[in-house]
């Protein structure tokens, strides 16, 4: 009888048989990230053609890259990955305050990163149409910035949900998946920073 009542409560298609230990949404996020890596791969291929095959000066003598400011920015983004992890481990232990603080901090640091990046664009002294160096610089950092923006939107939604009391020790899937994406954005920035600014 109980089962029948549960069946009446259940909406949508019948529950699927779980044929893998991996959770469907986590797997979906990993596949999405694989696809994102390939998108970055296309941009890095363009970078390779311009910088290695064509061998242009990097950066061209008349331009300067703000390596130090971007380095501080990198540190901010890396720290935000740790606060994200803190948020996730907190909610796994049922600590909602830790979750809220962690998500909020992560969101704010991501925002600071994005605003610094925009500020850098307005002061860097060259534009996308100033030759291949400008093209690659703006398109790679811009593509990454777009990903930060998407990640920030997801973080914002999760923060709102956490403040409305949605997650618990047993149900924190949204945070976990948002976290995976945020870590991806972070690691990707380290690659972009290394190839564009340092090397």
């Amino acid at each position: 009888m109980e089962a029948h009542a549960a069946a009446a409560q259940h909406h949508g298609p019948p529950i699927a048989h779980q044929s893998s230990r991996v959770n469907a949404s986590v797997l979906g996020m990993f596949l999405f990230i694989a696809s994102e890596i390939m998108l970055f791969g296309a941009f890095f291929t363009a970078y390779f053609f311009v910088r290695v095959v064509n061998g242009i000066a990097w950066p061209p003598p008349q331009f300067n890259l703000p390596v130090f400011v971007a380095g501080v920015n990198t540190a901010i983004l890396v720290t935000s990955s740790f606060t994200m992890h803190w948020a996730l481990t907190s909610i796994k232990r049922g600590n909602r305050i830790g979750l809220q603080a962690g998500l909020l901090l992560t969101f704010l640091m991501g925002l600071v990163f994005l605003l610094t990046q925009a500020r850098e664009y307005s002061r860097v002294g060259f534009a996308p149409h100033d030759g291949a160096f400008g093209t690659i610089f703006y398109c790679l950092t811009g593509l990454h910035g777009a990903h930060v923006f998407v990640g920030l939107s997801i973080l914002l939604f999760m923060t709102i949900r956490s403040f409305r009391g949605h997650f618990s020790a047993d149900h924190h899937h949204g945070v976990e998946i948002a976290g995976i994406y945020w870590h991806f954005v972070d690691v990707m920035w380290i690659v972009v920073y290394t190839t564009i600014y340092i090397l």
Binding site: V50, H129, G131, G134, C139
Partner: peptide, 21 residues
């Protein structure tokens, strides 16, 4: 649209890159 130089040799781009990608 933005007059970037991915494939424009004048700006240091690599036209064959389009075909490769």
């Amino acid at each position: 649209v933005m007059h970037t130089s991915f494939f424009d040799t004048a700006g240091g781009g690599y036209p064959l890159g389009y075909q490769h990608i």
